[in-house]
Design a binder for these strands. Sequence first.
RNA 1: GGCCUGUUGGUGAAAUGGUUAACACAUUGCCCUCUCAAGGCAACAUUCACGGGUUCGAAACCCGUACAGGUCACCA
Length: 555
Amino acid sequence: MNEYTRLADTIFPNIKETLEDIEKKYPPRNISSSAEVTRFAPSPTGFLHTGSLCTAMIAKKVAKDSKGIFYLRIEDTDQKREVAGSDEQVTKELIKFNIVPDEGYFSEVLEKGKYGPYKQSKREYIYQVIVKHMISQGMAYPCFCSFEELDAIRKIQEAKKERTGYYGEYATCRNLTPGEAISRVQAGIPYVIRFKSKGNHMEHFAIHDEVKGDLNLSQNDMDIVLLKSDGLPTYHFAHLVDDHFMHTTIVIRGEEWLASLPIHIELFDTLGFKRVKYAHLPVIMKIDETGKKRKLSKRKDPEAAVSFFLEAGYPVEALMDYLLTIANSNYEQWMLANPGVSSDEFKFSFAHTASDGALFDLDKIKNISKDNLARKSGEQLTEYAYKWSKEYSKDLKEIIDRDYNYFVKIMSIEKDKENPRKDYENYGEIFDKVKFFYDDYYEEIYNKGLDLRSDFSHELIKKVIANFIEYSDMKLKEEDWFEVCKENAKQIGFAPNKKELKNNPDIYKYMIADYMEIIRVIITGRKNSPNLYYCLNIIGLPRILERLEKVAGNL
RNA sequence: GGCCUGUUGGUGAAAUGGUUAACACAUUGCCCUCUCAAGGCAACAUUCACGGGUUCGAAACCCGUACAGGUCACCA
């Protein structure tokens, strides 16, 4: 038994299994060589971030496009930052956006797949086996430096204007003999396990990134921490172990990880593990108050949390479409050329992924969302809005519940036209725009006061109401009905069009638009509404008369 | 500060050495129109961060400069 093995046994006396044993437990996946295995690996520190959703979407797409596997892994190795329950929350939100993992973590009681556990805190044993192996091979060692000592080292480095970190001559614990290390461990001195880097910072190596292209990076020479004093791994080590044994083929993550790529490469090479491919995605940016670019921030930007879009009632496909336009520059053209086709049909390619971060553009999402809602039929729109309302809007749910078909009629206004109306940006806007179709809400609007223009005299308004009641025939077809309205209006002095009004200022003071405005405001309580003919038809003659007579009577 | 990455209009971007720098969002104007929402048409980068070079020819290639972002933890 050599010294390193003794050290390893001293630190992990209860670990009997070897690296080979673990390898056997997680054999290569039985999939074709072109199939990609991707993962989404959030740390449960809060709600799902819009940028993370984008990353997850891409990972899912890459797996799906290649008939591979997409799995979800929870990276909960930092117990200090952990927010209770957010692992399940993130998972649920992901699924709401139709990003359903093929395997991985679903909840505390449900995991799918043979490569688990998929929650890092439950994989402690595996990490320890690997670390023990590394110690016994002289690839890793215990470090007894305290936070204070580390801090002192950093200060010296800063003073000398050298790189900060635990490396080279500063990595004092790497020179401890196994014997010395054993006695310190036995003496109960706290320690972490560090990687013994063989890299040279002055030397470079070539590496290909799917997004960034060919890179030339400095070798790593940091003796980074593998296992923290609490026995849990750092991100770097967990990445090595998990992505190796779960047989990830391509790691898709944010570009904040690019700087530590040399560490990961050295780790994979040292263990003799097959390197994975990498795709480092740019982060979504935003212009802050001072005019500077910065990352979308969960604290400052409501749109950084996906719940923002869920609550506002944007269709999930709209957000996904938008994120895809950022992720693949050719997606927008494809989307325009294939209206209504699911984005699942689109082939994602890293060749069209920008390498710098886009500014988040809410206007664009609104536009995409409007299009999306306009394309839905009245029935579909009602179905989706109703589903949304169950979770996010009592008021909307309540009016739909009163009479589902009545609501469908409202949502169907002019849907059969060549260019359907784009009335709503999201489900959250519907209620307010639709209230007037309901008598109790109309009553509310009426009581607040109808917004009739002040240059309309009471006499004029009464005249219009009387004329409309007498001559308007709701049984007519739309065009005919409107023609009749024009004629009637003309009888009481309203020009039938702009030209006539302009050309005959002595005859006309008002035109048909004004006539209709009076009716519109009285019936709907607003100056703008969808096509009046359809509104009136849905509300029905008795209630129209009621509203008109009420106004006339109170003038 | 070191290292890495990037820079085409207000925004997302196309164009990978060859005529007027696509397209989409936003904005503005006009048309259509019962209002609104749409829709149609048009305007919006004399120029691709800046300086130099290579070339018959550069937004594209090379070199500098500037600016921006990322990163330098027992956080991920």
